[in-house]
Design a protein around this nucleic acid. Sequence first.
DNA 1: AACATACTTGACTATTTTAGTCAAGTATCG
DNA 2: CGATACTTGACTAAAATAGTCAAGTATGTT
Lengths: 153, 153
Amino acid sequence: MKITSSTEYATRLIVNLGRTFGAAAVSTEKLSESENVPADYVNQLLLRLKRAGLVQSHRGSGGGYSLSRSPEKITLGEVLRAVEGTIFEDVCGKYNDGRKDCHHQGHCGISPVWQKLAALIEQYFDSITLAHLMEEKAGSCGKVEAMLGRIPQ
Amino acid sequence: MKITSSTEYATRLIVNLGRTFGAAAVSTEKLSESENVPADYVNQLLLRLKRAGLVQSHRGSGGGYSLSRSPEKITLGEVLRAVEGTIFEDVCGKYNDGRKDCHHQGHCGISPVWQKLAALIEQYFDSITLAHLMEEKAGSCGKVEAMLGRIPQ
DNA sequence: AACATACTTGACTATTTTAGTCAAGTATCG
DNA sequence: CGATACTTGACTAAAATAGTCAAGTATGTT
């Protein structure tokens, strides 16, 4: 498991837009330079964010992208779903040698574990907003810290 | 993000071994049949579990694999590290256009979020034992349930 | 000892996904 | 009208995943 480049880049890009929220739009070329992401890739990623309604675009000279909503109202979960399609792919029924039903259906101790992991990860990402990411200091995600602290040993 | 076939298969295989813990060893061919995993792939996966010390092998006729320890003493985290190498790959410094240091180092609101996700996932897997997986009823992982219930909204 | 069973090793291949590129557009501003 | 900048969709290269294969070595049984 890992964070893909699309996820990492899209997150940097939208956080960057968050910093100028309320001010002028930022062109993809400027974003490409300041975030060190290939320009065509920036285009592709911002388009996905736009289609998901997270950012808006302005064409023509002086155009570019800007957030559709304030940073407190955009979650990392929304960003990930916009760029990746789904955050955590459902595995049930996938590695079952052609059969459609879950291999360990009925009496299954395994698939609930994958499903709960999926829920855990989605809730984690949904609990983080762009505003949190913009705080720009290590360990700034209080909710996450609290959650980790409470995992039973 | 997803569960890979290696992870899913290895988990099914070692849970299968857990069910006959204390009894005779199980051959890779039998495991292949009962879990619907290609025989050569079973070999490969069990070898990794063996090298990690989670299972032991017995050669010759009547041989096969068996758990090295009781199911309560083997965690899913250990299984995943054995088959995947690492559970969650560190992304810091990876998408940085050749630079070695983290792109958003110093004032970074993003990388702590990836790192905490990694910690969250590892702790999740480390909290689940084979014994939990063998309980064979949905929603059997009490600790996980508790953890999910406590995620702040 | 011979033979069957079954693990061991490492390399090899095919498929899919990821990461990024490219070209030919369309809309807007000055 | 021309420069700026988003839009669309297809395309390619590299890497990871998902297996496969062949040639072993060790053990138990007859």
